[in-house]
């Protein structure tokens, strides 16, 4: 999910009610063909626009906050709004205000603050600012459903093995087969990103079976002890 604030310039002024009506037509599923200047294949494809909030209208200028699926071209959206309005329009300015779970909040930092934090760490041994400016990578999966595993299950997953029900200590409700989840340790460390082979309800009732398969392993093998394989006492 991405969010943008965009300044659109109409080539002619229109009545506010018509502007609002046309913009509302673009909320939901829309068609888009990527522009000439893009790195993707220029096929007609559908995109989801979750919301368009009109923040301000001044003559030909329209300020909007737009929530949409990744891969949506806001410039093309402004162009197409202009076509439907009959005025023609183009995008003047764009700022991305959210990417997945990350937004403009207290975690947002600048190159200035980052280089200051690095200086304080390297020259003065002061870590606190750098630990504030850099977040643990686990924040990357903060928006995903999570599955917590016991210590003895970790190393097998780190080697790419599927996660079986007995290894699961707790999990979020509402996970369906095929959903992408974050597999984590009891300390909160990210082990892997996985795909559900069973639903939360099935896992709740089951005592065995393969529940998740790793899509991408994050944790290095050997961090947690090896508790699998033939030579075990």
């Amino acid at each position: 999910m991405k969010e943008y604030v965009c300044l659109m310039e109409l080539h002619r002024e229109v009545e506010e009610c018509k502007l609002r009506e046309v913009i509302n037509q673009f909320v939901g599923k829309i068609y888009q063909r990527p522009p000439l200047r893009s790195s993707v294949k220029r096929t007609l494809r559908t995109r989801d626009i979750y919301y368009i909030d009109i923040l301000d209208i001044q003559g030909k200028w329209v300020l909007m906050r737009i929530g949409c699926a990744p891969g949506t071209y806001i410039r093309k959206l402004c162009h197409d709004i202009g076509l439907v309005l009959g005025t023609e329009a183009h995008m003047r300015e764009l700022r991305r205000t959210a990417t997945g779970p990350f937004k403009e909040d207290e975690t947002l930092t600048t190159m200035h603050e980052l280089s200051e934090a690095i200086y304080l760490w390297r020259e003065c041994g002061y870590e606190d600012l750098l630990r504030k400016v850099i977040l643990p990578a686990e924040y990357l999966v903060s928006h995903m459903p999570k599955v917590i595993i016991r210590d003895t299950a970790v190393d097998a997953i780190a080697h790419g093995a599927a996660l079986a029900v007995p290894g699961i200590v707790r999990l979020h409700e509402g996970i369906r087969k095929g959903d992408v989840v974050a597999i984590m340790t009891l300390k909160g460390e990210l082990v892997a990103i996985g795909e559900a082979l069973m639903s939360s309800d099935e896992i709740a009732k089951a005592s065995k079976g393969l529940a998740f398969r790793p899509l991408r392993v994050i944790m290095k093998p050997g961090v947690y002890p090896r508790c699998w394989g033939k030579a075990r006492s």
């Binding site: 643990p136 903060s142 699961i168 200590v169 909160g188 947690y224």
Partner: peptide
């Protein structure tokens, strides 16, 4: 932080060892 409001299904209560791994922060 991620806007997840799901409840937990608890299969068991377990402890984690301090001998390996780290609390992320």
């Amino acid at each position: 932080y991620g806007g997840v409001t799901r409840q937990w299904i608890i299969k068991s209560e377990e402890e984690t060892s301090p001998d390996y791994g780290y609390l992320p922060w």
